[in-house]
Design a protein around this nucleic acid. Sequence first.
RNA 1: GGUGCGAUGGCCGAGUGGCUAGGCAGAGGUCUGCAAAACCUCGAACAGCGGUUCAAUUCCGCUUCGCACCUCCA
Length: 466
Amino acid sequence: MQLNFYNSLTRSLEEFKPLNGKTVGFYSCGPTVYNFAHIGNFRAYMFEDILHRALAYAGYTVRQIMNLTDVDDKTIRGALQQGVPLKTFTAPYIQAFFDDIKALNIMPAESYPAATDHIPEMIQLVQTLMDKGLAYKSPDGSVYFSVDRLPGYGKLAHLDRSQLRSGVRVSQDEYTKEGFGDFAVWKSWDTGDGDVVWDAPWGKGRPGWHLECSAMAMKYLGETFDLHTGGIDNLFPHHENEIAQAEATTGKDFVKTWMHCAHLRVNGEKMSKSLGNFFTLRDLFDKGFTGREIRMVLISAHYRQPLNFTFDALEAARVSLRRLDECYDALAARAGDAAPGVMPQFAATQITAFETAIGDDLNTPEALAAFYTLIRESNSALPSLTPAEAAAVIAAFEKMDQVLGIVHFGRKVEAAVPADIQALADERQAARAAKNWGESDRLRDTLAAKGWIVRDSKEGQTLRHE
RNA sequence: GGUGCGAUGGCCGAGUGGCUAGGCAGAGGUCUGCAAAACCUCGAACAGCGGUUCAAUUCCGCUUCGCACCUCCA
């Protein structure tokens, strides 16, 4: 199966080929754990999950690393405000992040290194940059990367330094930097940092944000690896600076393919904490939506297009998931214990369409179209399917679900039918057999009032709890 | 000011130089005692103005509007 990905570095669609056989090194920028992540944040993690799953589907061994930024201005500020140690402040948000990705059926990465656990590696990286003359210590004790000394700086963002200057109001006085575009790889301690401080050969302080990712990515994935992902807003300066730090240190290409996802929007604007227009998962759970429905909405648009978040879309996801469930259950009932036989042509056709869509830069909307077509044609073919064929169609659903992650995940477990409900249902069945329609309809209403939907079919009546 | 992206039917959202995206909602139908589900059919769109072309929603230009990035940001 061929995978083509849009590489932000070259601004073009490229066939994906790993650097080392069948193993893929894959680094994703993770959360800054100063607050609950909102669903805009999760759009990025969801895109990375689809990428992870697509690579696994295509037969690759995926080594995904996602960092946790647990030291920066916001985490330090939060810890100081609460009067607790930094780790005490960040721990609940780290836990919430893991709870949330589980609630969205996002596959775990290989590891989630925390910045504060990798300070020695970062100090070493800064030292190397200084030894090479690419970073310098400023009078206040901070260490800056000198953008001018690295040819090729700006290759990811496609910006040159002359363009950086205009329109940006940054007070030069705030910084003791030599060059305008220079960025901190080490921030010297000041009173606002409280007790968050580490010793380095050039003075006390803490690592710069961009440095964290370069150091941890290289530690876990090597000096050159396959994929690096994040939100589009990370492209500059964060990823540009990661490249600068890594390539200045090693003299080698840092990452072969960079992938960035577009933003989630609310009323046409980016969902962000600074705008205050965000929903956390908890907000949506409180409104009665499920992780499964949210997952469905997040994969319904292509990752490089802005996705407009609406409650209508969540409702639509709910209805279409119900259709999926009923189709799957009908197939399962038909299949019984049968082993999968030869896959019917209509299912094989949709698997091919599905793989083409995923291979085309993770086109999940197209993939979902194939998935829905499979549902429709399965329902249509159901009466004529043998148990072995039904089992084979189920296998087709399972196959697509390796990437989509929606078939089984988050399904409401069907409640056992209580005895009193069953008694009412039996009564209704008897009334129907006697063609006592008034009585049977009355009993149907009674069951509905108790939350049980009755549905008649050739095989008899079925009960579903709402 | 610089750079980049976008504008698709009631809503969400793909795609293509000529041939149905898909989902949700809506209309009609088949089935069913009725209902529900399922299936079938249908209506409905490619921001505006030019250009290229036998043919443009798709390519090019301009206009309008929107979004993002330009050292907090998924």
